[in-house]
Each structure stands twice: as structure tokens, then as C-alpha cells.
């Protein structure tokens, strides 16, 4: 131990989050992340198409188990994520403040909203079916039900500017309804996403349910959009209209469900629109008991 009291600086290595593990990019690349004033913050891993492929394999593998959990249980798990995020709020406030160039107070507000958003969506887990599902009237001795089911493995391009609140707001509704996701995080502000991954890894979210790729959406998203084993793609964070159009076209190949980008006020109450985005309706006939 040095007696002077001077410590060696311990810097954090920001890596990807795939299948519950934190690997570096398969490509070995990384890129510099700067704060809002252009000062160096950290190096982040720059994901490649093969990382995206691996992430999708992990998401697909996790889908069976996650979608089979009861909605009530998924709600509890997402609530647990909110608990742990709350426990690390100082770190998140720090990263959001530096990354997004907010005041301390504003950053605290963003973290508060993010925790509340998780709690809000956690509560919806076992209620969304009552709202978007239905018991349909039919002319015969049958019950006829329409039930929402998760779409599957969902690729998401997270918002570029709102690196925590925006991310949580696109992530939570897809996950709580039983989907597994591959998220391409904000390129310029990726750090809160990786710290959120650490929260997810230590909460009760099974590995592979959420996978985070830091890197360029323009590079990775086309591979996810054309991937035949991805069931839906959320283009919320795609700012380039040309790219969004191209992604939507490639997504048509296997009839992926597509959510188009558009302006969003992340601080406003979101409504259940995003919950319904990645649900498929299954309608079943059931004979009335004898």
C-alpha cells in the first residue's frame, strides 16, 4: 500500500451485454465517448454485426423461458430492476448529467422518472391483457377470446438523446410483455445503458432477455432489420429518415413488426401504446363446458 494516500485511478471498462455476460466486441473495436462539452469520458465497445448476431441468438434462447413466465412474475422482475436502479441512483445521476449536459437537479429528475417509468410498466404486466385482449361475442355455444402474446425477439434502436429515460421507456414495455430484446444504444451517450445492463445482470432478469450493443445504428441495425430470426424492430432512435426507410424495407423480408420513429416527449406519461406494439393477438374458440 502506498503510504502517501495517493491512489491509482480505477477506470471502468464499458463492455457489451450479451446473454447475461459482458463481452468486449468480437471485432475488438472501441470508440471514444465524450461528454456534452466534448471532454473524454470513457471508451465504449463498438459492436459489430457478429455481436448483433450473437445477441439475437441469446435473445432467441431466452425467449421461451421469459415468455412462459407469468405476467405477474415478469412484473415483479421489472419492479426489482426499478429497486436496484434506485439503489445506484448516484451513479446514474452522474452519468446522465455528464453525458446529456444537464444540471444536477435535471439529471436527478431524469433518474427519478426512469425509476418511476419502470415501476409504472411493471404494474402493467398483469393488466395489459385485460385492456388489449377481449372476450368476443359469437353466435354459437362457444367462448371466443382474443389474447395478447409476445411477438418474440425484438431489435430496438434506442433514442440518441435521452440515454437513460428514453432507453428505459422503449425497453420496459417490450420486456414486461414477454419479449426479449437486442438494443442498439445511443451512440454518443452509451454509458447509462451499460450501467443499466449491470443493474439488469444483478436483478432477476434472466440472461439474454435484454442485450445491449453500444455502437453505430447505421452499421448494426441493417443486419438486425434483415435478420430472419428477429420478429420485430423498433426504430425509435433512428434519426436519419433514409436509414429508417431502408430498415423498414429490409424488415419486410420476414414481415417483421416495425415501429416507426417519431418525436417523443420522454417525460410525459407514455400510455399503453408501446405495450401493445410488440404483442400479437391470438384468438381462440373454446366450447362452453358440458
Amino acid at each position: 500500500m502506498p503510504s502517501s494516500g495517493e491512489r491509482i485511478e480505477v477506470r471502468k471498462t464499458y463492455k457489451l451485454y450479451i446473454g447475461g455476460a459482458f463481452p468486449r466486441s468480437e471485432s475488438g473495436r472501441s470508440y471514444e465517448v465524450h461528454d456534452s462539452k466534448g471532454r473524454f469520458l470513457a471508451n465504449a465497445a463498438q459492436a459489430s454485426r457478429k455481436d448483433a448476431r450473437d445477441a439475437d441468438v441469446a435473445a432467441r434462447k431466452a425467449f421461451g423461458g421469459w415468455s412462459a413466465k407469468t405476467a405477474y412474475n415478469r412484473g415483479q422482475v421489472v419492479y426489482r430492476v426499478a429497486e436496484l436502479l434506485e439503489g445506484r441512483r448516484i451513479q446514474f445521476v452522474d452519468e446522465v448529467q455528464r453525458g446529456e449536459g444537464l444540471s444536477r437537479r435535471q439529471a436527478e429528475r431524469v433518474v427519478d422518472l426512469s425509476v418511476d417509468r419502470l415501476v409504472w410498466y411493471a404494474g402493467w404486466a398483469d393488466k395489459v391483457a385485460q385492456v388489449v385482449g377481449s372476450a368476443n361475442p359469437v353466435a354459437g355455444p362457444y367462448f371466443n377470446f382474443s389474447l395478447p402474446e409476445p411477438t418474440g425477439a425484438v431489435a430496438m434502436v434506442a433514442p440518441e438523446d435521452s440515454s437513460l429515460l428514453g432507453l428505459v421507456s422503449v425497453l420496459a414495455p417490450a420486456v414486461v410483455t414477454g419479449n426479449t430484446v437486442v438494443v442498439v444504444t445511443s451512440y454518443s451517450r452509451p454509458l447509462p445503458a451499460i450501467t443499466l445492463s449491470e443493474v439488469l445482470a444483478t436483478s432477476d432478469v434472466p440472461g439474454g432477455v435484454v442485450n445491449m450493443l453500444t455502437g453505430s445504428a447505421a452499421e448494426i441495425a441493417p443486419w438486425l432489420a434483415s435478420h430472419m430470426d428477429v420478429n420485430a424492430i423498433d426504430l425509435t432512435g433512428v434519426e436519419d429518415a433514409e436509414l429508417a426507410r431502408a430498415l423498414e424495407e429490409s424488415a419486410a423480408q420476414n414481415l417483421k413488426r416495425v415501429r416507426r420513429p417519431g418525436p417523443v416527449d420522454w417525460a410525459a406519461e407514455p400510455g399503453i401504446d408501446r405495450l401493445a406494439s410488440f404483442l400479437e393477438t391470438k384468438t381462440v374458440w373454446h366450447p362452453i363446458g358440458i
Binding site: R53, W223, S226, H227, M228, D229, V230, S250, Q253
Partner: peptide, 9 residues
């Protein structure tokens, strides 16, 4: 084909 495929196919 140039794009990833899946076990569904």
C-alpha cells in the same frame, strides 16, 4: 442471401 437466417426456416 447476405442476411442472417434462423432456425424457424
Amino acid at each position: 442471401t447476405g442476411h442472417y437466417t434462423g432456425p424457424d426456416y
